[in-house]
Amino acid sequence: MLENFGSTYSVTDGTPGSPEVTSDTVSYLFARYGGCTFNGGLYRVHTADSSRRACTMLAEAFPEFSFPLIPFGFDWLGRQFILDLRTKDTDPEIMMLEPGTGYALEIPRKFSSYHDDELVRDPEPSILPGFFGEWRRANPADLAFNECVGYKVPLFLGGEDSLDNLELSDLEVYWSLMGQLRIATQGLAPGTRIDGVDIRDGI
């Protein structure tokens, strides 16, 4: 597990571990690469501690989920990858929670093969390396573990999916803001005019 992934992606921050026992579990992923940043921030693997903190912020932004949220990694746009625990499968599939669109998307790939297959064979749908390359040409600095590139105006409020609508953000602050906006605007008809935003009290 993780051999193909490790030979394809470069660790640019953090220190990989050497777990003694190989198993297809999140614990093994954390032991091997927890806290590591790959390719300047394109993808990062949670530690057990950062996963627990992320679980709290995801539950606040997506309160409709009643199953346990176990984030194991996140990409440069702050999108969180979690186990789809709506079934009792011992090797669950993956879900991606997107703060900028407000969507929860299913990735039809088992956790055990996600890193070594999906992220190696066809990473574009998951982590958008092409778009990240565009961002890096204009912003060459690596992302810190607690940073992401967020939308100034989220896509669910009509923002454009373009470089001009992106900015460097603190990951937890960005998720908190996007979560509040997502919840406050759910149920509004498309095209509803929003005249202003108060971060403390909502819209």
Rank of each mutant, 00 (worst) to 15 (best):
K152P: 01
L119A: 03
Y174C: 13
P108T: 08
E118L: 15
P99L: 08
E147F: 00
T192V: 10
G41M: 05
K88E: 09
Q186E: 10
Q186A: 05
A61N: 10
L58V: 15
D91G: 00
M178V: 05
D13W: 09
G187Y: 06
A31H: 02
A59R: 15
F30Q: 02
L77H: 05
G35S: 02
T101S: 14
G133C: 09
I107Q: 06
G73W: 01
G187I: 07
D117W: 15
A141P: 00
D116F: 10
L171I: 13
T47F: 05
T101I: 03
G102F: 05
A104Y: 01
Y114P: 09
R193P: 04
N4F: 13
L143H: 01
W76M: 00
Y114G: 06
L119Y: 05
N4M: 12
F131I: 06
A138C: 07
A54Y: 07
D89A: 13
L105V: 08
G40T: 00
Q180V: 14
T8E: 12
S51Y: 12
K110D: 13
M57V: 13
T47L: 08
G191I: 05
R86K: 09
Y103V: 09
G179I: 07
M95C: 11
L166K: 13
P99N: 15
T37K: 02
S112A: 08
S7H: 11
S113D: 15
G159N: 05
P125W: 01
R136A: 01
S18C: 06
F111A: 08
V120M: 03
P108Y: 14
I127M: 01
P190Y: 08
F72K: 02
A59K: 14
D122L: 12
D84E: 04
G73F: 02
G150F: 01
D198Y: 08
T37V: 13
F65A: 10
E172W: 07
K110G: 06
T87D: 04
E20R: 10
